[in-house]
Nucleic acid binder design. Structure first.
Lengths: 262, 262
DNA sequence: CGATTCCTTGAGGCATCTCAAGGCAAGTGG
DNA sequence: CCACTTGCCTTGAGATGCCTCAAGGAATCG
């Protein structure tokens, strides 16, 4: 109880702690170099100079292939790695007592996952591949050593974590003060931005997640997600064909929620 | 645009960026030592050994008095300090375009605030005192230097940030999948735990925030908060007198939302 | 081909919001 | 000391947005 209390001092509203089975995927011995990676401007090395990136290269990250539906870690798993998405899409989720899941995030190429595990030494969420994917497994202990020896490096890691905090702030705002329409618009515009940042079209893309997963993430039922998609289509804001989305009116979509968000 | 995109790569759903006026309070020249602080087991020094705490002492944090209603930083303010609450209670909030606020957290003695500013170099939220209060202003640059020289220290900082991420995960779950009753129960139990960790009664306390602020935090209207309080009172779970709360049945209150959260 | 999964759409219900009125406590000014 | 204002809370009544339940279509798979 005492330790639980100490663990909780950081303003955690609800406490999750529970052991689960070990990781589902075995590491494969492929090694990765950040310096030659095409994602280096989006991923961990972003903001580092050539010297620092070389230092990261020396860590020789393992790379793992992950099949669709597989998890790279689950709630309760020991925290050892931070994972960078090389290809594919992931979801982060928590499992509720009644078996339902709460999706807390989606992750695309160049994005990092697993930083929630640092707090207690165990992952607080699970990460599941929404399509066949590949990740770099960054051993946190090594990264930490590197950061200890290099202020620049440490700053990058801290900034990445802070970014995660800011991201969750905005999601909180979305869940706390927007209606279904605004939520879906915000979601689609966010995906759009991230696709664009990765060199894909900002107005036409394939969603990797199901209506139920979108709904869980946005705090609404899958039927409401579906209906809202249909509504946007009627308003000529979108063209929707199952998971294939075409944004017809980016500005119009923005206006849907612009009035709420500063 | 390019930099905005880079800034966004960390999966930020919605982008807030905007400059605001400078900080409202002037630093007073009182200096603080962690080693003699009664909050040291809850606050920044938690988990550090005597040596490390002495190193923190050498930073000589400034201390600031903050009057009720004053902010220590606002959205857009330059990020320079992390703040530790010495006494009093704070809220963190974002401001929506239409002027309404979204409360993203409450902070009690020993808790840290302001880590969201690291991501972009500017604070993404505002911190407002809910009663007369006192904070320690921890210069992030100095802390960062210290961490660079000391792996132990760095780990503590990272863990604090991770904790913030986990905290927001649970709040997200709350907002995404609980009803009014469950939300308020979870909120009260969390306050209860935090009061207890600070040596106060876990079953009787004074709320520093208004119904509207609770509502904003929990994603419901103030009237619904009020009605739910009344309901809990009728069920003999609580005794409510304005902001004075007495929990009559802790277990019963837990059962209200236990079925949902694993 | 049936089984399965995912999506769409409709109809009705309910939880929460909105709007409105009133109470209480603290502060202010005459 | 009292009248008045102000802020905050409570409660009611009606409206509504989203959920629940249900049925059916389309795509995928063994």
């Amino acid at each position: 109880m005492q330790t639980a209390m100490l663990d909780n001092h950081g303003t955690t509203p609800i406490q999750f702690s529970r052991a689960r089975t070990a990781s589902t995927v075995a590491p494969t011995p492929i090694r990765t170099q950040c310096s030659t990676c095409h994602l280096k401007d989006l991923c961990l090395p972003c903001g580092l100079n050539t010297n620092d990136v070389e230092r990261i290269d020396a860590l020789m990250f393992g790379r793992r292939r992950v099949k669709m539906g597989q998890t790279i870690y689950r709630e309760g798993d020991k925290f050892q790695f931070i994972y960078a998405v090389r290809s594919g899409t992931f979801k982060s989720s928590l499992t509720l007592k009644d078996g339902r899941e709460q999706v807390t995030g989606f992750h695309m190429a160049g994005e990092l996952m697993g930083m929630d595990g640092l707090a207690s030494g165990n992952h607080a969420s699970a990460a599941t591949a929404l399509e066949d994917a590949e990740v770099c497994a960054i051993p946190y202990a090594h990264l930490s050593d590197l950061a200890a020896a290099n202020g620049n490096m440490q700053h990058v890691v801290s900034r990445l974590m802070s970014r995660e905090i800011v991201r969750e702030h905005s999601l909180m705002m979305l869940l706390g003060s927007m209606n279904a329409e605004e939520r879906l618009a915000a979601f689609l515009l966010n995906i759009s931005q991230r696709m664009k940042a990765r060199g894909y079209s900002a107005t036409e893309f394939h969603l990797r997640m199901s209506r139920a997963e979108i709904g869980s993430y946005l705090g609404m039922k899958l039927e409401t997600v579906s209906r809202t998609f249909s509504m946007f289509q009627q308003q000529r804001l979108l063209e929707v064909d199952k998971k294939h989305i075409q944004i017809l009116d980016l500005d119009g979509l923005s206006r849907t929620f612009d009035t709420r968000v500063q």
